[in-house]
Simulated assay, not measured.
Amino acid sequence: MSIVLLRCDDRLIHGQCIVRVLNDYKVDQIILADAFTAANPIMENVYKMSVPSTVKLSLVDPASGEAIELIERASADESSTLVLVKDPVVVLDLQKRTDSLPKSLDIGPMSNRAGTRKVTYFSFLLQAEEQACEGLSDFGVRVFFQQVPGEKEVEWSEVKQ
């Protein structure tokens, strides 16, 4: 099975959305690549308690070599893995460092923050995040927005202007 989904969601693991993703993609392993979370033992414990006991959760700093090792190992094994990050800037960096990631990025909910632009009703992007989406697209990665599986997918090319 390997990596079944590469997803960007600024809330990372949360309620109905992640439950839908875990169930619909039959995820048994999550690689959560986020520097803040990986360095924060309290957040690590919160996230570990929030996933089902049948799902293995690895928290890693995306800038580390360990992140690439976990991704490459997951792409070659039998697990059904979700790679989860907070923003597309991280994904662009990871895509440049390994060929083992899927060539598609599902962007889920992204909060309305100062300086963001509304891209879909559930996703707001900073300029750097928009530039990363364009860079990913130029890199041959399909970038699309989908809040939860089963909902309409909105392509980056439809909303980038």
Score class of each variant (00 low, 15 high):
Asp106Glu: 12
Leu101Pro: 01
Ser80Glu: 08
Ala67Val: 04
Glu158Ile: 05
Tyr121Arg: 11
Asp77Pro: 09
Glu69Phe: 00
Ile68His: 04
Gln131Met: 12
Asp106Trp: 04
Ser123Glu: 08
Leu32Cys: 13
Pro109His: 13
Pro88Gln: 11
Asp138Ile: 08
Ser111Lys: 12
Val60Asn: 03
Val85Asp: 08
Val119Trp: 02
Glu151Val: 02
Ser157Ile: 12
Ser64His: 10
Glu129Asp: 10
Lys103Gly: 05
Asp106Gln: 06
Ala67Asp: 01
Ser80Ala: 04
Glu78His: 13
Glu44Met: 03
Val119Arg: 05
Ile68Met: 09
Gly108Arg: 00
Gly140Ser: 08
Met43Cys: 00
Asp77Arg: 03
Glu155Ala: 13
Ala39Tyr: 04
Ile71Leu: 06
Ile31Met: 10
Phe144Gln: 11
Phe145Ile: 10
Glu129Leu: 03
Glu78Ala: 11
Phe122Gly: 01
Lys103Thr: 10
Asp34Phe: 01
Lys152Glu: 14
Pro149Ser: 07
Glu129Phe: 05
Leu92Gly: 03
Leu92Glu: 11
Pro41Tyr: 10
Glu66Phe: 07
Glu130Phe: 07
Asp28Gly: 08
Thr116Trp: 05
Arg142Glu: 15
Ser75Lys: 03
Val60Ile: 06
Ala74Cys: 06
Val159Ala: 05
Thr37Phe: 01
Glu130Gln: 15
Pro62Met: 02
Ala132Lys: 03
Arg73Ser: 14
Lys118Cys: 02
Val143Phe: 12
Ala76Glu: 10
Tyr121Ser: 14
Lys103Val: 06
Val46Ser: 11
Ser100Thr: 01
Thr81Leu: 01
Leu94Ala: 04
Ile68Lys: 02
Cys133Asn: 08
Leu82Cys: 04
Met49Asn: 10
Ala38His: 08
Pro109Phe: 07
Tyr121Gln: 09
Leu105His: 07
Val51Trp: 02
Ile31Cys: 12
Ala67Ser: 13
Gly140Ala: 10
Ile68Glu: 07
